[in-house]
Design a protein around this nucleic acid. Sequence first.
DNA 1: GAAAATCCGGAACACGTTTTCCTGGACGAA
DNA 2: TTCGTCCAGGAAAACGTGTTCCGGATTTTC
Lengths: 332, 332
Amino acid sequence: MASRTIRTPGIKDVAALAGVSASTASKALNDTGQLREATRERVRRAAEQLGFTPDSRGRALASGRSFTVGLITTDSSGRFSIPIMLGAEDALSAGEMALVLCDTRDDPLREQHYLKSLVSRRVDGIIVTGRRTEAREPVDVPIPVVYAFSPSTDPDDTSVIVDDHGGAASTVRHLQSLGRERIAHVTGPESHLSAQIRAASTMGAARSGFVGQPLYGEWSERWGRHAVDVLLRAEPTVEAITCGSDQIARGVCDRLRELGRSVPDDIAVTGFDNWSVMALASRPPLTTVDMELEELGRRTANLLLDVIAGTPRRGQLVLPTRLITRESTLGT
Amino acid sequence: MASRTIRTPGIKDVAALAGVSASTASKALNDTGQLREATRERVRRAAEQLGFTPDSRGRALASGRSFTVGLITTDSSGRFSIPIMLGAEDALSAGEMALVLCDTRDDPLREQHYLKSLVSRRVDGIIVTGRRTEAREPVDVPIPVVYAFSPSTDPDDTSVIVDDHGGAASTVRHLQSLGRERIAHVTGPESHLSAQIRAASTMGAARSGFVGQPLYGEWSERWGRHAVDVLLRAEPTVEAITCGSDQIARGVCDRLRELGRSVPDDIAVTGFDNWSVMALASRPPLTTVDMELEELGRRTANLLLDVIAGTPRRGQLVLPTRLITRESTLGT
DNA sequence: GAAAATCCGGAACACGTTTTCCTGGACGAA
DNA sequence: TTCGTCCAGGAAAACGTGTTCCGGATTTTC
């Protein structure tokens, strides 16, 4: 029993080595209290020598905060949640906050479980994000919550969302500035709010230039290709096609090329998402709308930090999108 | 000063309501100690009535564990880290463990920072993952660590890696079973270990049937398209092309179709990764190798739990891949 | 030289839980 | 009745830190 298990040194060990009390050591390391500089330095050296790392569990207990926030996502496999997550993590880590990840896999039971776990961990706040732009039921926890991408149905909650409307309108204005008037729109399922909004905004911006009706389908290249056939049969004079996603736009480009129509000379095409693997691999590369999701994640995190700090900002914050112009409208 | 700020109820509140001491309440709720069933029930009811949620910070302090593990990833935007992360999170959450996410963005400084933070949080263990299959420097922390995807250079560390060799060989055997003998290989940069290994294994499995040399390039559709031109010029009699990634394979298929060559009737094609957005959108859909990364994440997490529990399993664990057969080799 | 102001550092407590040890009572056996 | 055994539950310590308060020492002031 001579040698006990080695322990990571605590503040008491540091204090002992420096010849002071634990409380003095705490003050020295946190630059608080009234201490002689010499003492401070002595403690610092002792801490360094022992490789002291403060135990944040103790700190959390003492401070009443955990310096942790939870991220609840209904689908982290999706390409929307990921950048949001990364942006949030980035902003939080700057504030010495850790992010614990909870993927509910769209299961309400799992969500309840995770919420309970986060409450139990006394996280300082929670970010809730989803895959759709439809508003979602607010979560019921005694902890600050901010919603990202999928807003809360309660308008008094804090939500950060994408400006689908502005994004769609920006593609139309861009095309109009290039002299394209007759504009069509191909997008995903009509049941998706984002598809509806983008379609409505596109029609609104194109005004009388809009040809036919929005073509609703699915978020796939296959649908994009098929939609071209449908569209050209009905509206052979179309000058530009705005698409609800880059996948659709890529399908549109592929089909147009197969039909011998030049993009953008004959018909200009725009996408939505700036999903690089689609937008850049498309032939030609796509002019598209970047939702700046990573920035959205950062903003969300900072908003959450504000709420935690006691200065909440209620309501929906709509973040602007950015138009990325490439060959599919500009040519080479 | 009559009413204090509302607090979330602690175990003492539960104990008071049930008319017992805090320690008794703890025993009742944890099914430990010697208590009358009636007392247990009384405490449970009190806890429920108050909506009591145990504070895991206190528990962590008392138990010496934090029930938290860290995940260090050098690139979480990449499509390899994500599934690993999700698999790990899945396996860990089953064990009531939380996962804190640390994206180093390939910056050694950030990595150091995160490691320090995780040590400070006294996480029970750390998972380190990367974007490449090359071995990486081990991290230096007094905490159990398991490496996923990118193994540690120290063979005594615990690492879980993908069977690149077996995956490549499985595509060749599949093609041979379909009667294809003359097999070529198009892959990414020769500087990438995974490209080298997949190429070597392909050649080894194809034996004398291998035509020419492996074509090294980049992980892009563009390179896949270009490689077809190079290959057909040099080896017009090739019967199958195995590719180092689905992106390359998709490019290969596209170019072959443009040249009027049928896939798979004239030339069969295989990919690698089973990246659905590539493999399924390709025309035709790709036979490819699924690295089962989510399973890899789960296995990694379970291995870490073993290490934490005190039964480490040292060395490299090579996880098998799964061949997914689709029209690019089978036809319709 | 004495009183007052200032500075430094330590003791004690708080945070919320678990765990170890202990006590008082009930009960059975001799 | 007395002793021993067993059981239910309480008191206290432990985990590691931050903070508040307080006393002693040193310096300043008259």
